[in-house]
Simulated assay, not measured.
Amino acid sequence: MQFFVEGIPVGKGRPRFMRNGHAYTPAKTRTYENLVRLRALEAMHGDSPFQGALCVTIVARFPVPVSYSKKRRLACLQASEKPAKKPDIDNLVKAILDGLNGIVFDDDAQVVQLSAAKNYAEVPGCEIFVSNADD
């Protein structure tokens, strides 16, 4: 299965704490996880979650900063330069896997192989591929 989540990819934010000690997930993270959930639901077409061991591949595409020169922009789009900036790739993966929980798979513990990359592209977003580990 594969699907695309439009928009600039967002990493999992650190939990925030209220004065009374309760923790909550930042709104930006919740919004992005909900968008991932929505696109996953559309891609699943009402099917039940995958069972067993899974492989997940995530390709995060970021926009080239507008301040870059034409030469540097071209280098970014040709993958000569990578987006070595925030969000950290592990936080990005965590936000996406949390968004897929309960929809594409029952628990992210089912993921036995994971591949993730950050690139520049004209159209920002995340391409997500999920397959059975046996395939």
Rank of each mutant, 00 (worst) to 15 (best):
M1T: 14
Q2S: 15
V5N: 10
V5T: 05
G7T: 08
G7I: 08
G7Q: 08
I8F: 02
V10F: 00
G11Q: 03
G11K: 05
K12G: 00
P15A: 05
P15D: 13
R16K: 13
F17N: 04
F17W: 10
M18S: 11
R19F: 10
R19Y: 03
R19P: 04
R19L: 13
N20W: 06
N20K: 12
G21R: 08
H22E: 14
P26E: 01
P26I: 01
K28G: 03
R30C: 13
Y32D: 03
Y32S: 09
E33K: 09
E33Y: 00
E33D: 00
N34T: 11
N34L: 13
L35Y: 00
L35R: 12
R37N: 05
L38F: 09
R39L: 07
A40Y: 02
L41Q: 10
E42A: 12
A43C: 08
A43I: 09
M44Q: 12
M44S: 04
H45G: 06
D47T: 06
S48M: 14
S48I: 14
S48T: 13
F50R: 09
G52W: 06
C55A: 11
T57D: 12
I58P: 01
I58M: 14
I58H: 01
I58V: 11
I58Q: 04
I58A: 01
V59Q: 11
A60T: 00
V64W: 05
V64N: 12
P65R: 05
S67F: 03
S67K: 09
S67L: 06
S67E: 12
S69E: 10
K71Q: 15
R72S: 09
R72P: 00
A75D: 10
C76S: 10
C76A: 09
C76F: 07
C76P: 02
L77G: 01
S80M: 14
E81A: 07
K82G: 01
P83L: 06
P83W: 04
A84C: 03
A84S: 07
P87C: 09
P87M: 07
D90F: 03
D90N: 07
N91C: 08
N91S: 04
L92K: 02
V93D: 05
V93F: 06
V93M: 02
V93A: 07
K94Q: 15
A95H: 02
A95W: 02
I96Q: 00
L97N: 02
G99T: 05
N101T: 12
G102Y: 08
V104K: 01
V104N: 05
F105P: 08
D107E: 10
D108R: 15
Q110F: 06
V111N: 09
V111I: 15
V111C: 09
V112T: 12
Q113W: 07
Q113L: 10
Q113D: 12
L114W: 06
S115V: 06
S115C: 06
A116E: 12
A116C: 10
A117T: 12
A117Q: 14
Y120F: 15
Y120G: 01
Y120P: 06
Y120N: 08
A121G: 13
A121T: 00
V123Q: 11
P124W: 03
G125M: 01
C126V: 15
C126R: 00
F129M: 07
F129D: 09
V130K: 09
V130F: 04
S131D: 13
S131M: 14
S131E: 15
N132F: 08
D134W: 10
D135T: 09
